[in-house]
């Protein structure tokens, strides 16, 4: 019964879970594509093509927390950073990213209120 259970990826920030089929930088059947970080990868369930992959998440390059690629949880800028680390070191990120994050914060605030 247990043997058929799949490896599951869980985002430590938002709790999103999904089974993954590959962890690493070179997902199978992707030919010329190389990932720039070690990722949790699954087959893209929304593509009719069986060989398309989907990156679910990876580990934060600073704190090694396992995070999903959702913009609320992490950010990739040459490396993967979880949102907690991004906020901690916001000043080191280029202003384009800073303004973008500030805007997003405002928007989500507006949505809540």
């Amino acid at each position: 019964m247990e043997q058929t259970r799949q490896k599951t990826f869980t985002c430590q920030l938002c709790g999103l879970t999904s089974p993954y089929s590959y962890y690493g930088q070179k997902p199978p059947n992707t030919r010329a594509i190389v990932l720039l970080e070690e990722c949790y990868v699954t087959k893209d369930p929304f593509s009719p093509d069986k060989e398309k992959f989907l990156v679910l998440g990876s580990t934060c390059s600073l704190c090694s927390m396992c995070v999903c690629v959702g913009s609320d949880c992490s950010l990739f800028y040459t490396k993967r950073f979880c949102m907690q680390c991004v906020n901690k070191h916001l000043d080191q990120f280029p202003h384009q990213i800073q303004t973008e994050l500030a805007k997003k914060k405002e928007r989500s605030k507006a949505a809540v209120s």
């Binding site: 010329a32 594509i33 190389v34 990932l35 720039l36 970080e37 990722c39 990156v55 990876s58 600073l62 950010l75 990739f76 800028y77 040459t78 490396k79 993967r80 950073f81 070191h89 000043d91 080191q92 990120f93 280029p94 202003h95 384009q96 990213i97």
Partner: peptide, 23 residues
């Protein structure tokens, strides 16, 4: 302020936000 240097590139490029490269 920063104690840790993240080693991020000085010039912003949207390209750096993509975690894929193609051969």
């Amino acid at each position: 302020t920063a104690k840790v240097d993240l080693g991020l590139p000085v010039e912003y490029d949207a390209r750096y936000r993509i975690n894929v490269s193609v051969c």
